[in-house]
Nucleic acid binder design. Structure first.
Length: 290
DNA sequence: TCCCAGGCGGTAG
DNA sequence: CTACCGCATGGG
C-alpha cells in the first residue's frame, strides 16, 4: 500500500473530474472516494476539505509520478478559470458549477479504444464494455480485498478475434477495435510518434487513419490524452449547450459543425477544449436535476 | 413497441 | 464536398 497526499488543493473535485465524461474506469465508493485503475496501478482518491489523499498499489512504477502525470498536477487551473470566466456570464456560471474539473492525461492507447467504443453508445454501457475487456484481456491486481484489472495491452487484446469481441457486447464496433489494435501493434500508426508530434493537426491526421476514429473521436483523444486544450469535440451535448446559449437555432440538428467550431475558436481564447468541459458538465448535470 | 445513446464508414449525388 | 443510411446492443 502506498500513499500520496496533496494539501490546499483548489480545482480538484472528484465528481467533477470523474463524472464529466472524459474517463470510464473510476467508480464511486460508499465513503465518496473514487477507485480506479491508472496504467498498472490501482488508486483510491479521497477528498477531505482541500486535502486529496491517494492510496493504492503501483506495480514497479513511481506512485507519485503516476498521479502527477495522470491528474496533470503541473497545470494551474486558476489561470484557465480566470480567463474563461471573463468571457461571458455563461462560462462564469458553468465554471462556478464545475469549479473542480481537471482534464486528465490518460493513456493514449486506452483512450483510443475507449472512444472508439463510445461511438453511438451511452456512458454506462461504454463503462461496462471496457470493464469486460479488462476482465478478459487485462492483468489482475488485488487491492483492499477486491480484484481489479488493468486495461489490456495491444498485444493482449490482439488475442481477441472479431467474434470474441462481438461476444463481449461490442456490437458493430468489433471490427473497428480488431483493426485498430492490429494497426497499432504493427505500427502502421505509431503512438509514440504521435505523442512527440508538435502540431495538433498532424496528430489528428494520424489518429484518423485508425478504424473507428472519426473527427469527434479524434478530438476526444487529443483533448483527454494528449492535452490539446484548443480542440473542441462536438457531440450532441455540446451542440445543445452551444445552440441554447449562443446560436438559438430552432432546429438544433441544423446547427452545423463548422459554425460551432468557428464560434468556439473566436470566443474561447484558444481554450475551447477546457471551456467545453465546463459547459458539457454544466448542461448535462443540470439536465439530470431538472 | 419505439427511441435513443458523446459516430463512423460506406455510398450516392 | 455534403447528405444520408445501416450498424449491435441495452435501457427507458
Amino acid at each position: 500500500m502506498e500513499n500520496y497526499i496533496l494539501t490546499n488543493q483548489e480545482s480538484f473535485n472528484l465528481e467533477h473530474i470523474f463524472e464529466c465524461g472524459q474517463c470510464f474506469r473510476w467508480n464511486k465508493e460508499e465513503d465518496g472516494s473514487y477507485t480506479g485503475v491508472i496504467n498498472n496501478s490501482v488508486i483510491n482518491v479521497k477528498k477531505e476539505d482541500t486535502t486529496i489523499i491517494f492510496t493504492g498499489k503501483s506495480n514497479g512504477v513511481s506512485f507519485e509520478h503516476t498521479i502527477k502525470e495522470y491528474f496533470d498536477l503541473a497545470t494551474d487551473y486558476r489561470e484557465y478559470k480566470n480567463k474563461l470566466s471573463a468571457v461571458d456570464e455563461y462560462l462564469k456560471e458553468s465554471i462556478a458549477f464545475g469549479e473542480g474539473i481537471r482534464i486528465l492525461k490518460q493513456d493514449l492507447w486506452e483512450c483510443i479504444i475507449s472512444f472508439i467504443i463510445s461511438a453511438n453508445n451511452n456512458i454506462p454501457r461504454i463503462k461496462k464494455i471496457i470493464e469486460k475487456l479488462s476482465l478478459n484481456y487485462g492483468e489482475k491486481i488485488e487491492f483492499n480485498g477486491k480484484t481489479y484489472y488493468t486495461f489490456p495491452t495491444p498485444e493482449s487484446l490482439s488475442n481477441a478475434t472479431v467474434e470474441d469481441l462481438r461476444n463481449l457486447g461490442l456490437g458493430f464496433r468489433d471490427k473497428r477495435i480488431y483493426n485498430t489494435t492490429k494497426m497499432i501493434l504493427e505500427k502502421q500508426v505509431d503512438l509514440n510518434k504521435i505523442k512527440n508530434m508538435k502540431h495538433t493537426d498532424e496528430m489528428r491526421e494520424e489518429l484518423l487513419k485508425l478504424d473507428g476514429v472519426g473527427p469527434k473521436v479524434a478530438d476526444c483523444i487529443l483533448l483527454f490524452s494528449l492535452k490539446r486544450e484548443d480542440v473542441f469535440p462536438i457531440d450532441v451535448w455540446v451542440r445543445r449547450v452551444m445552440n441554447d446559449l449562443y446560436i438559438h437555432n430552432e432546429d438544433e440538428e441544423k446547427v452545423n459543425k463548422k459554425q460551432l467550431q468557428k464560434l468556439a475558436e473566436e470566443k474561447f481564447l484558444g481554450l475551447s477544449g477546457i471551456a467545453q468541459q465546463y459547459l458539457f458538465y454544466w448542461k448535462r448535470e443540470k439536465g439530470k436535476s431538472a
